[in-house]
């Protein structure tokens, strides 16, 4: 018997995961928000920032109760399809992923937010599609499809800096702080910051996106990078931008770094910011499931 990732199982699992991602905020993000709110209540209970947290937490409840998208910007879907090489997909994987996403958009009452031509017509495709899909082949017999529903209030605050190879930690910290300062209140703080370091000018932003898929607040397995994440988070939270950009000590809930090899002449640093509504999904399909 051949090893197949059945397309109908992919559609069923992925469509449900994406639909739910638009409505139910993941537990790790909710936990980080509640923790930040408690801190805000201790530090500045009558502040505008506290009011921002109260509305965010109420909104999360309202979305769950009424099965409405958390935010009307249900984003552009950014998908990572990692195919275990011991199996294959019975149909063209791109059409299978898009079928699942189309179902999620419809069932989840997602806003169609994608236009077909970026410069001239800007005609809405009215389907919320196509998605941006990154494919890779990995060892094993599992197909993993993960991703983000990426709103553009935060996506517009992305940045890539091509630093000198000797810029080191301070260079990285400076590049992230600059991007967050420039973003200010635009990306719906408190934000979650993905940082991609290394690679090339095109691969570093993909690393930054991948970083956002990690559990919010989880530390990098490499101690040096974990420390760098803590340092950046600490400095970001001293910028004073605060919840909603209305001032305060919680500008970011987490900083997460992914890194890769790079060229002797460079140190690419990409910053990808997620709004507090960090909507992510992940499904795994085994061969012959």
């Amino acid at each position: 018997m051949s090893s197949v990732y059945p397309s109908e199982v992919i559609v069923q699992k992925l469509s449900r995961a994406v639909r739910d991602a638009g409505v139910f905020l993941p537990e790790d993000v909710k936990h980080a928000l509640r923790k930040a709110y408690e801190q805000q209540l201790q530090d500045a209970p009558d502040s505008l920032g506290a009011s921002v947290f109260e509305h965010i937490l109420q909104n999360i409840k309202d979305a769950e109760t009424h099965r409405l998208p958390i935010c009307q910007d249900t984003g552009m879907a950014v998908v990572f399809a990692e195919q275990g090489i011991e199996g294959y997909v019975s149909r063209d994987i791109e059409s299978v992923i898009h079928k699942a996403l189309a179902q999620a958009v419809k069932e989840g009452n997602f806003r169609p937010s994608v236009v077909e031509d970026p410069v001239f017509t800007r005609k809405n495709t009215m389907t919320g599609l196509p998605a941006v899909i990154h494919y890779s082949r990995i060892p094993g017999d599992v197909l993993r499809i993960s991703g983000l529903l990426k709103g553009f209030g935060s996506e517009n605050c992305s940045a890539v800096s091509m630093l000198n190879p000797t810029a080191g930690e301070q260079g990285v910290i400076g590049a992230v702080l600059e991007a967050v300062k420039k973003a200010g209140g635009k990306p719906c703080p408190p934000v979650i910051i993905g940082v991609g370091i290394g690679g090339t000018a095109d691969s570093a932003p993909i690393l930054a996106k991948r970083a956002l898929l990690r559990e919010t607040g989880s530390a990098h397995p490499d101690q040096r990078y974990a420390e760098l994440e803590r340092t950046i988070l600490d400095q970001v939270n001293r910028l004073g931008i605060g919840p909603g950009g209305l001032g305060g000590d919680t500008t970011a809930l987490a900083v997460m770094i992914e890194h890769a090899h790079t060229h002797i002449a460079g140190l690419p640093v990409a910053v990808n910011i997620s709004c507090w509504a960090d909507r992510k999904f992940c499904v795994e399909i085994a061969v012959n499931e």
């Binding site: 921002v52 909104n59 409405l68 998208p69 958390i70 935010c71 910007d73 709103g151 719906c188 209305l246």
Partner: peptide, 13 residues
């Protein structure tokens, strides 16, 4: 006026 960012479900009501 500032409206609470990301709070789409809350405003729907």
């Amino acid at each position: 006026l500032y409206a609470y960012g990301g709070c789409g479900a809350l405003y729907a009501a």
